[in-house]
Computed example of a mutant assay.
Amino acid sequence: MKIRRKIEIAVISDVHLGTFGCHAKHLLTYLNSIEPKKLILNGDIIDIWQFSKRYFPKSHLKVIKRIMTMAANGVEVIYITGNHDEMLRKFSNTTIGNISIVDKAVLELDGKKAWFFHGDVFDISIQNAKWLAKLGGYGYDLLTLINSCVNWYLEKRGKERYSLSQKVKNGVKGAIKHINDYEKVISELAIENGYDYVICGHIHQPKMEYVQNKHGKTMYLNSGDWVENFTALEYQFKRWKIYNFNNDKLAPFVTEDEDENLEVQDLIAAITIVKRAEKKK
């Protein structure tokens, strides 16, 4: 019998299912270990930008199956659209059972207001040069594929994993400034609108800190990603924490192997239809 951790809210983002960089097995282990009242999928869960019929492993499909099972068992699942799954925005404000698709969400948590959104609307590079951002996405995917090969070799040698993309980001001053500006703009807007918490993703940088200016203060939270950081946000007992798969120990949860009701062909067909509908717009 599996004993899962009961939490009020779990937030994950930037999973990028359908890409080589996605660590679906890590995420599946995490999802199998928790029993949240609410599961917030804060954007870029399925990478429709880079979706290919040639690559959608069974482990990726099992993540979707697990989320659907959680919803069927009473978990409220809120899917907030991101830029890599922006094609779902045409279905915003749609609810199917316990699953809802929205562009943003505001929740009251123990008397405090929490503002959830993916964050790409505050990214000028996405808004003004989408084609360049998509090109960068393919480059990032290639980098993570190379990185996975490097880490496979390092693990075989008993050495620590190494993040090439993180090294690139930290070595480019412009990237660091971009992240700092992003966090500053979002936090100031949250303060201006009276939100106690602002929760986003998009930049793959897990973080939790108080931000204060002359107008007030807010807590900025970023759920990170499941490409290189393997992090989530959890809310329980009136407190937030960053869950880190590499540091927070888990009981060994076995991946569920029962027959899936959702076949990979059905998923591919559904995403292909969405992509074709987007091209016709």
Rank of each mutant, 00 (worst) to 15 (best):
N32V: 00
F20R: 03
H26F: 10
L17Y: 09
L27A: 02
K6I: 12
A24L: 03
L17P: 04
D14T: 06
N32P: 00
R4G: 03
G18Y: 05
H26K: 14
N32G: 11
S33A: 14
L27N: 02
V15H: 07
R4V: 14
L17R: 09
E8G: 07
L17E: 10
N32T: 04
G21D: 08
I9Y: 14
A24F: 05
G21H: 07
K6S: 14
R4Y: 03
T19G: 05
V11L: 08
V11C: 09
H23P: 01
A24V: 05
V15F: 09
S33C: 04
V11H: 10
T29Y: 01
R5L: 13
C22V: 15
G21S: 12
T29R: 10
K2P: 15
F20Q: 00
D14H: 09
I7Q: 06
H23W: 08
L17M: 14
C22S: 15
A10E: 12
K2R: 13
F20P: 02
I34P: 04
T29C: 01
V15G: 10
L27M: 06
L27V: 00
S13T: 15
I7C: 10
G18T: 10
T19A: 05
H23V: 11
I34H: 02
G18Q: 09
G21K: 12
L17A: 11
L31M: 10
E8D: 15
N32D: 09
F20Y: 13
I9G: 06
Y30E: 09
L28F: 00
I12K: 09
E8W: 06
E8Y: 11
K25V: 15
I12N: 08
R5V: 07
S33L: 05
L27D: 00
I3K: 14
L31F: 08
I9K: 12
G18N: 09
A24S: 15
R4K: 15
D14W: 05
H23A: 12
H26Q: 00
H26R: 00
C22G: 02
A24P: 02
T29W: 00
L31Y: 08
I12A: 07
G18S: 10
G21I: 14
L17T: 12
T19D: 06
T19M: 06
A10L: 14
G18W: 08
G18M: 11
R5Y: 12
Y30Q: 02
Y30W: 11
F20M: 01
R5A: 12
T19I: 11
K6G: 02
I9H: 12
I9C: 08
V11D: 10
I34V: 15
V15Y: 06
A10R: 13
R5I: 09
S33Q: 04
I9L: 14
I7S: 12
L27Q: 05
A24C: 03
S33Y: 02
H16S: 01
H23F: 13
L31N: 06
L27P: 01
G18D: 09
